[in-house]
Computed example of a mutant assay.
Amino acid sequence: MADAVDARRVCGMPEKAQLHVAMLALQFGYAGFHVVSRLALNMGISKLVFPVYRNIIALFLLVPFAYFLEKKDRPRLTLGFAVQFFFLALCGITANQGFYLLGLDNTSPTFASAIQNSVPAITFGMAAALRIEKVRLDRRDGVAKVLGTLACVAGASVITLYQGPTIFAPTAGDDKPSLQEVPFLAAVAGEGKNWTLGCVYLIGHCLSWSGWLVLQAPVLKKYPARLSVTSYTCFFGVIQFLIIAAFFERDAGAWVFHSGSEVFTILYAGFIASGVAFAVQIWCIDRGGPVFVAVYQPVQTLVVAIMASLTLGEKFYLGGIIGAALIITGLYLVLWGKSEERSRIGKEAAAASAASSGSGEREVRSAKLASSITQPLLPPSSTTSDNV
């Protein structure tokens, strides 16, 4: 029993805490990626070449770890698994990244981050429709999960749409450079773009992302090798983008690096936003579930607002404080609701086992009750094993 507890700890940190730390770090990495991607587009990097290089870097980063660490646990690759990985790549890489770059090119990093806050609601709806996530509106835990998700989306919307009085101003006086004086700031602000078209692309990006989050759960049940699933997904994503680029990117010079800044943006996108982020995210999906991952998405908008304030000299307004409070409240409601749900299911399973007359009947009824939450938001206690 002690070995089971220790196996779920890293540096003395229990797995539940690891999940929260990993998701917070993931949001910081993605927040920086918004600005880095906008910089890449501003420098003229092709919207087809950029994701190809990004996923190639991620693939080379993930493959060695997937091969050696999951050598004994990786199931045999069959045609059925290959087809599933192909569609995961089509949804989670090709459509997801393609729509994102098209949307970002017509909007701004802050707006792109804000609209992504629809991902928790979309993921919650998809997971509930597929019965991956159970929702009981006649119980407190079900209502808490729904209200928490809405509070997260509302908090991120407040940050974006409502300013209010200035709470923090990093630059005093009127010596702050204007958008016209600094072309990069104008690019970050998304000036001169078709915002309506950008919204359409970003909505497609959110739908693709949510579908990818949900579809990974049943795949991981049958193929419980997280890094291998990510590697195969990246591989098929590269193939799909190469085929698209062969038809639509006719300029051979688009594949050549012209500056160190271009190399940096691609390396950041490949190592942080794809390689590291994909590995962390798929681990969190496996251990915590798709809704747990998606519900942290609004935190990213808060991080982008802070980064913009510190790096671009933007002011921090009361709306940001109110939005942050809503986000924290929403996260608490969702996680509390899931914790209450798991506690109730555990008590019902224990009562059913005690009331059963035969050992075989007890096992069947316990399995049915335990499977009533097929995709937990949080893992069970550290003394049990829960493989999604």
Rank of each mutant, 00 (worst) to 15 (best):
L267K: 14
Y268A: 10
Y268I: 14
Y268W: 15
G270H: 06
F271T: 15
I272D: 15
I272V: 15
I272Y: 13
A273I: 13
A277R: 06
F278D: 01
A279D: 02
A279S: 12
A279Y: 00
C284R: 01
D286C: 05
G288M: 05
G289S: 04
G289N: 03
P290R: 03
F292E: 00
P298L: 03
P298Q: 03
P298D: 03
V299K: 00
Q300I: 00
T301M: 11
V303N: 01
A305T: 14
M307G: 12
S309N: 07
L312Q: 10
E314R: 08
E314F: 02
E314P: 08
K315M: 10
F316P: 05
L318F: 15
G319T: 02
G323Q: 08
G323W: 04
A324C: 14
A325L: 14
L326Q: 04
I327S: 04
T329P: 00
T329V: 05
G330M: 03
G330R: 01
Y332I: 02
L335G: 01
L335M: 14
L335Y: 07
G337L: 01
S339F: 02
S339V: 01
S339G: 11
E340K: 12
E340F: 02
E340H: 08
E341V: 00
E341T: 01
R342F: 03
R342T: 12
R342H: 06
I345F: 05
G346A: 11
E348W: 08
E348F: 06
A349S: 13
A350G: 03
A352I: 04
S353Q: 11
S353P: 00
S356H: 02
S357Y: 11
G358K: 13
G358M: 10
G360S: 10
E361K: 04
E363A: 12
E363Y: 03
V364M: 00
R365A: 09
S366I: 04
S366R: 14
S366P: 00
K368A: 09
S372R: 14
S372D: 05
I373G: 02
T374D: 03
Q375T: 14
P376C: 08
P376W: 02
L377D: 07
P380C: 07
S381H: 08
S382D: 12
T383P: 04
T383H: 13
